[in-house]
Simulated scan of single mutants.
Amino acid sequence: MANTSPEDAALDLFRRLNPDKISKNLDTVLQYRPDLSEVLLSSIDQPLRSERCADSGNQYLLCDFNRDGDSYRSPWSNKYAPALDDGIVPSDHVRDIEVRLNNAMRVYVDMYYEGGVSSVYLWDQDEYYAGAVLIKKGSSDDASGWDSIHVFECLETGEPDKWDYQLTSTIILHMQSSSSSADESKLGLSGQLTRQTSQRLEVSDVYSQVANVGRMVEDMENRMRTFLQEVYFGKTNDVVNAIRSVMPLEEVKENEKRMSNVVSGMSKA
């Protein structure tokens, strides 16, 4: 530990803290070490916040990918709030892809999540463009929430109509049981999962670019959702079943005795 840098130590700390309280913990750490703000804010994914676009009336998500100073750009109007005269915006071609992706992801969220907020932000790069697909779904009482952050970049390969897509996805999940009394204890479950993938895909026009990004996000979310179900929910179910039985204790002991008798009889046969 003597050779560990403050940046590595802080990142290692956040890997062990409750993801449900990551924003509060981040504010606390930065109060004591403001010099780590650039590293931590750019490296640690936080639960997404939403705002409503003044022009379109649609909700959009706030993050570092659409922030310029203290203002945030709406993917629907391409304007910053509070207004900025020199805010960074994508080029016309990239903006066209951004608009199409936002419309596509809005349909995706309605179909898969039955409501929620999605936002897609693209920005120009020397080798074409990169972007982020953000999805937020929460319960009506805000006791549970799902935040998925998919950051990708598109790189030309030198092959005709072939691009390399690199995707890094992070899911922040938190759930808490509701109780009717303040004296009752609540069961909470939270976690954060990050996965990466890359594919070489064919690109012929703007529609194929939208389809490629959408398909990669969909496939990644399906894999991560399955993993979360098996590890988080499956393991929690096993633990709860091991410490609590819905059957009376006498009945459980009687069943165990019968099973023991059956096994003993089979071994003597």
Rank of each mutant, 00 (worst) to 15 (best):
G69H: 15
Q199A: 12
S180I: 01
G145V: 13
N102S: 11
K21R: 09
E254C: 04
H93L: 01
L167K: 08
S23I: 13
A132E: 06
V203Y: 04
Q46N: 09
L30Q: 07
L84T: 07
V109I: 15
F152M: 03
V107P: 01
Y72L: 14
P160H: 09
D141R: 07
V217T: 11
L17V: 10
R195Y: 08
S180E: 01
G265Q: 11
S204G: 14
L26F: 01
N78Q: 10
L61P: 00
L155P: 03
Y72G: 15
Y232G: 08
F233H: 04
S190M: 02
S5I: 10
A211I: 01
G158A: 01
M247R: 14
F227I: 10
Q196S: 09
E51G: 02
P75C: 07
P75M: 05
S42Q: 15
S71F: 12
G57R: 04
E256V: 03
S140R: 13
C53Y: 11
M175H: 13
D205F: 10
Q31K: 15
V246E: 14
C53M: 14
I44K: 00
G57S: 04
L48N: 05
L61V: 02
N18S: 05
F227T: 10
S267Y: 02
K257P: 02
M111R: 14
E98S: 11
M224K: 09
V210L: 08
L155V: 07
E38P: 00
A143M: 08
E7H: 11
S169V: 08
A10L: 08
Y112L: 14
V94R: 04
D238Q: 14
V246R: 10
P82T: 13
L155D: 09
L84E: 07
W163E: 03
A81V: 05
K21F: 07
D96T: 02
I88F: 01
S178Y: 06
L13R: 15
N66E: 11
K253N: 09
N25V: 06
D12H: 06
A2W: 05
V133R: 11
V120M: 00
E156D: 00
F233I: 03
R95Y: 05
N261Q: 10
E218S: 04
L228H: 09
S140C: 10
V99G: 00
P160E: 12
L193Y: 12
A143Q: 11
D86N: 08
S37L: 12
G158Y: 02
N237Y: 15
C63T: 06
N103Y: 04
R95E: 04
D86V: 05
G265C: 08
S118K: 07
N222M: 05
Y32R: 15
S180G: 01
E230P: 02
V107S: 03
S267P: 00
V240Q: 11
L187F: 12
L84Y: 11
L173T: 14
V252W: 00
R16C: 10
A81H: 04
Y128S: 05
C63W: 03
D64Y: 10
N3Y: 13
S71M: 12
Q46D: 06
W146N: 01
Y32P: 04
S264T: 04
